[in-house]
């Protein structure tokens, strides 16, 4: 079970990773999107870090919902509602159980919620191309660092995909050859969480 101090620490770890990679995310987004992903995510996670204390006072499901709401209100681009929807749905679904199976099931439902919010599906060069493989790995009982590896490999695998959803789809064939920025930030966050869990174990 995550205690308050753990949650504050985890939020800080995620915010630090986003901050450290903000320029890289913006560069990826400049190649095939509108070039604001890094700045937007950084603004959202800075706001999250500023509220870490209040958010972490809540039980984990409510804390995730509050964190998602914070991202929705502060990110400013489409990634706010997308990452926010993930966290809000993940938090809500965790109320039905926080054991390994409960977490895998909540992650799967949260991924579906992102797909619904973005009117998208796997294979369109979006963050779903990281979330679905991670979801499958969790359902298959994989855990720890291996989950972070799955996420990073999945983000790499978006490079050759021709985008058919999101701003990158305007580029058609020219979107191939670049990693999807939302997949990169999703993988970074998954890696942050798995690394953090390892350090704590």
């Amino acid at each position: 079970m995550l205690e308050k101090d753990d949650m504050v620490d985890l939020i800080r770890a995620c915010a630090a990773v986003i901050e450290a990679h903000a320029d890289e995310l913006t560069e990826l987004d400049s190649a095939i999107g509108d070039g604001d992903h890094g700045y937007n995510m950084k603004r959202g996670f800075e706001a999250l870090r500023a509220d870490a204390d209040v958010i972490s006072d809540k039980p984990l499901p409510d804390a995730l919902t509050a964190a998602g709401m914070k991202l929705v209100m502060t990110v400013g681009g489409a990634s706010g509602p997308l990452f926010g929807t993930f966290l809000m749905s993940f938090g809500k679904e965790l109320n039905s159980g926080m054991d390994t199976a409960g977490i895998a099931s909540a992650f799967a439902k949260a991924t579906d919620a992102v797909a619904a919010r973005g009117k998208s599906h796997a294979g369109q060069k979006t963050m779903l191309d990281v979330l679905y493989p991670v979801s499958k790995a969790l359902t298959d009982g994989i855990s720890g660092r291996a989950i972070g590896d799955v996420a990073e490999a999945a983000a790499e695998a978006t490079i050759p995909i021709v985008a058919t959803r999101g701003r990158a789809s305007f580029l058609g064939e020219r979107s191939a050859g670049h990693m999807d920025p939302g997949s990169r930030s999703s993988a970074l966050l998954v890696r942050s969480v798995t690394d953090w869990l390892e350090r704590r174990a």
């Binding site: 929705v72 400013g76 681009g77 706010g80 509602p81 919010r117 973005g118 999101g166």
Partner: peptide, 11 residues
Amino acid sequence: DLGGAETNSEM
């Protein structure tokens, strides 16, 4: 107008 404006409006 574009992408995020729609998603944020839906939210």
